[in-house]
Design a protein around this nucleic acid. Structure first.
Lengths: 214, 214
DNA sequence: GGTGCGATGTTACTTGCGGTAACCCGAGTC
DNA sequence: GACTCGGGTTACCGCAAGTAACATCGCACC
């Protein structure tokens, strides 16, 4: 039958594809985001054109690779976000999950944050905006949705939730990136500091004594 | 005199350097972050090797270019941060300044956020961490310093201030980036939403009715 | 006044990468 | 047995970063 046949081929193609992705994963893990197509092909035991047949171009491969990791990370985050606990606990455990992930596999993290820009080929639309890593966008949207579902924000709740979703994700990302580089404190301390920030401690704190003029 | 002579040469070299930077600026403004050295050289009316003599490599040129813009933006931000107003006002005006800047010159902004990675040459240490744009790091440190100077955070104030500095900058950046791409609301609304977030409105809001089980 | 020398500039090259065209071969089919 | 078709390879193009080697102008110095 046509269907069975196509399914068979599809299966084999999918398996190949997964193998290639695993190889690419290994190389990216080893060489960072600027892993070359040659290197990936070599690691997979084949040559370049096959990669191109499967993924179109480098962007395609990178997108496929990123999707795997992004999906995995998002699944963990969703678990933390949806846990049946109070809000502060959920926030902290989400932060904790994210930071643990980037700490455990910094190369993957580094890779995910780079859209693999720099295609040589002819055109390149150069559209302003949407320069951020897709991972950040997706996390932002995800968080926005959870906020809107679970927090009562009155009118304009949707817009507020989206702003906050992206803002909080950006906060987490930037702080995490800085922390990974400098390691100025433990993960738990970082989590607490960020949660405190979200809990309005900045607004609540008093002015420092000895201000201007004293 | 040796000094005068060297100063003379230095002067001329500096002027050339500035001219080259202006040309590079024009090209980056036009072509985005992936402007080629050839294009920049052509715009400046010269050829590649001169660029390399002046800036070492592409990274050097991009760093010099980024420094100019970063310094300018940081100066505006510092003015907003140091204004003699209450904290909420200062926060809002800083957010406003940043967002107005990225809105006014999105290409520059886009360029600044890209470390111009992708050097072809042999090695490349691949040091994990410090992948973020230098602009973000510098803004984070700057903000941390202001927070520590002006807000009373008790013990561990320095560490807390640094976490918050980088976190808030990341929040501003991510939200700004998303906003630039989608334009879901006015700048003023965005500023208010972000300030509200920092002011603990997330913590203060109640749970949404109709939660799990209802 | 010739002369060396350093800054300024050029052409022409190398290397390495993304991407592609053209060829190749074994398996299954009529 | 010819035929096509999916998976594979070699050899190539175009392009950008970076460099080596050559040309030229101004200028102090004897």
């Amino acid at each position: 039958m046509d269907t069975t046949q196509r399914t068979d081929q599809q299966r084999s193609a999918d398996r190949r594809r997964r193998e290639l992705l695993e190889a690419a994963d290994r190389v990216v893990l080893r060489d960072g985001p600027q892993a070359s197509m040659n290197a990936i092909a070599a690691e997979a035991g084949i040559t370049k054109p096959i990669l191109y047949r499967h993924f179109g171009d480098k962007g395609g491969l990178y997108a496929a690779l990123a999707k795997r990791h992004t999906d995995a990370l998002l699944a963990s985050l969703r678990a933390a976000l949806d846990a049946p606990a109070d809000r502060r606990e959920r926030v902290e455990s989400t932060l904790e999950t994210y930071l643990a992930a980037i700490e455990a596999r910094p190369q993957v993290y580094r890779f995910l944050m780079h859209p693999a820009e720099g295609s040589t080929g002819g055109d390149h639309g150069f559209d302003v905006g949407k320069h951020s890593a897709p991972l950040l966008r997706r996390m932002g949207e995800e968080l926005a949705q959870v906020i809107e579902e679970r927090v009562d924000l009155g009118p304009e709740s949707q817009q507020l939730a989206r702003v906050w979703g992206h803002g909080i994700v950006g906060m987490m990302h930037a702080a995490g990136d800085w922390w990974l580089g400098e390691r100025p404190c433990s993960r738990a301390e970082l989590v607490r500091s960020l949660a405190d920030l979200l809990w309005g401690r900045l607004a609540a704190a008093g002015d420092r004594v000895g201000g201007p003029g004293f």
